Amino acid sequence: MKRQAYNPYLPAWEYIPDGEPRVFGDRLYIFGSHDRFGAEGYCENDYVAWSAPVEDLSDWRYEGVIFRKDQTPWNTRNQVYYAPDCVQGPDGRYYLYYFVVNSSIISVAVCDKPAGKYEYLGDVSLPDGHAYGTKSEEWFTFDPAVLVDDDGRIWLYTGSSQPENGQYGHEIKGCFVMELAADMLTVISKPKILLPAKWVYTEPNFFEGASIRHIGEWYYLVYPATNMTGLTTP
């Protein structure tokens, strides 16, 4: 270590909420939403990334803008992006999963480098080609998390328990999971509820922002709860 690492670990002028840490090679990368100082709402800036060598988490490097709001073709009003996740696919490329505010659509961008210039790939869709979340009977998606498991299977975790999200025309189910095909886009399983929506603020129920890891024999699902941070280990 060149110097002691402590919070806040990024410069005081940087605002990366919903931080998702990922180790690729010998560096730790931080992906997340991107707040703007003095803004009237959340996450008004484009996505950026920061990274540090795994042996020195005090030595953070700004990687620059990795994906802009105007790069999603159907996001013509440049609506903000919420909490993303990034994984390396079976083909060796890097896939950035993200959510355009209130859309109920999970979109994907791809790049050959963890913190390079991502390009829009498409939206998570059913085999018939329609984007999941564009039909009223499909559950409300929010804040994607992705696991490329040891056996090569790909899992998308998403959902919310916020009751106000019901105004967007989709049923709020809590946290649910769907399996994706090797193309990283196509849903090949029915959605399965893992943490049902139960809006009781005084109890630690699932809120939003799931994050998934497979470590050893265990799977860890980390999430903000309605009154604290939750950790589930199925």
Rank of each mutant, 00 (worst) to 15 (best):
L231S: 10
I188L: 02
D183R: 08
F37K: 14
Y132G: 07
F206I: 06
V23F: 08
V80E: 10
G152I: 03
L156A: 02
S160T: 15
F206G: 07
N7V: 13
L10Q: 03
Q88E: 15
D56E: 05
D123G: 14
T134S: 13
N75S: 04
K117A: 13
W199Y: 15
K117L: 09
D149I: 08
N78V: 00
V146P: 00
V146K: 04
F176M: 06
P224Q: 11
Y132T: 06
A39F: 04
V101P: 08
S103H: 12
Y47P: 15
P8W: 03
F99G: 06
D143L: 03
F142N: 14
Y219M: 05
G169H: 09
G174V: 03
S107N: 15
Y82Q: 10
Y42R: 02
A181D: 14
R93C: 12
D151P: 06
I105W: 07
W218L: 08
R27E: 15
R36L: 13
M1P: 06
K117N: 10
D183A: 07
S189E: 07
A210T: 10
F24W: 08
G116K: 12
T141L: 07
R3M: 04
P204G: 09
E63I: 05
S161H: 07
A115N: 11
Y9F: 15
C86Y: 12
I212C: 03
E208H: 06
Q4F: 08
N165D: 15
I193M: 03
F37C: 00
L28R: 10
E44N: 09
Y220R: 10
V187L: 15
H170R: 14
T76F: 00
S104A: 14
Q88D: 10
P8L: 04
A145F: 04
Q162V: 02
S189A: 04
G25M: 07
K198F: 04
F99V: 01
E138L: 12
C111Q: 05
L156M: 13
A181F: 00
Y201F: 07
P17I: 00
L221Y: 11
V148Y: 07
F99M: 05
V177M: 12
F206M: 06
V146F: 05
G25V: 01
T134C: 11
G41Q: 09
S136D: 14
